[in-house]
Structure formats: C-alpha cells, structure tokens
Amino acid sequence: MIAHIFEDRCDGCNNCVAICPTHVLDAGKDGAPVVARIDQCQTCYMCELYCTSDAIYVDPDQHHLHVVDPQAILESGHLGRLRHDYGWGREAGGDEGHLSDFWRLGPLLREGAEIAARRYAGRKA
C-alpha cells in the first residue's frame, strides 16, 4: 500500500489522484495529495509509474500497512526505480529498447514449465 508521499519532492500536479484506479488519494489543499482511502489501495504501483517527481513510495505488503522510515527509502534507491525500469516517459528520447526483450516472455514461461516437467518426471522415475 502507499506508505509515504515525499512532500518536498511532490510538485503538486495531482496526476496520481487522477490516475489511481481505485480512488485512494484526494487532491491536497495546497501541495501534496492526501492518502484518503488506504483500504482501497491494491498495491499496483501505478501511482509510482505516473509520478514524474518520483515522490511516492508503495510498500509491497498489500495486506498490512507498514510505518516506513522516509530517510531509509530515500537512501534505498527504490524511489523512481520502477518508472525507470519501464522506461516510462522516456520513449520519445530515442529507442532505448525497453520492450526489445518482451517477446521472450512466452518462451521463458514455457521453458520454466518444461524444467518443472522434466524435474517432476525425474523424481517419479
């Protein structure tokens, strides 16, 4: 669930309020948005993906709310990492090939299933 919004990084665009698919956030009076309905957060990370300020941290536990240490998160390198990994918003800057390996998803999935099938047959033999 959304665990922290870094108000000093937030530029107040409220894009996260609009794009959150489950209406977790309310626009702030001035500045950062407010987490208003955390029970509706499904831990989908979409707010991080759409936050151009890298000001939101989603804790990966979708069942329990955790108190996090903002300083530790700032130092962890997690902030903005997901958006970077997607290449989100950087497509216009030239071909960075963010999707050039995406075709391998199916073959790798099948390879995994084959590994499991071979291993299982070996165990049963």
Partner: peptide, 17 residues
Amino acid sequence: PALLKQLLRRIQPASMP
C-alpha cells in the same frame, strides 16, 4: 531459466519491487 534471471526486470519490471 538462466535467461529469465537476467531479463525479468526488463520484461516485467513490476515483478521486482
């Protein structure tokens, strides 16, 4: 698969966090 270990982040970034 060895290749999956290398490429999971590039294929499905959201699998990592």
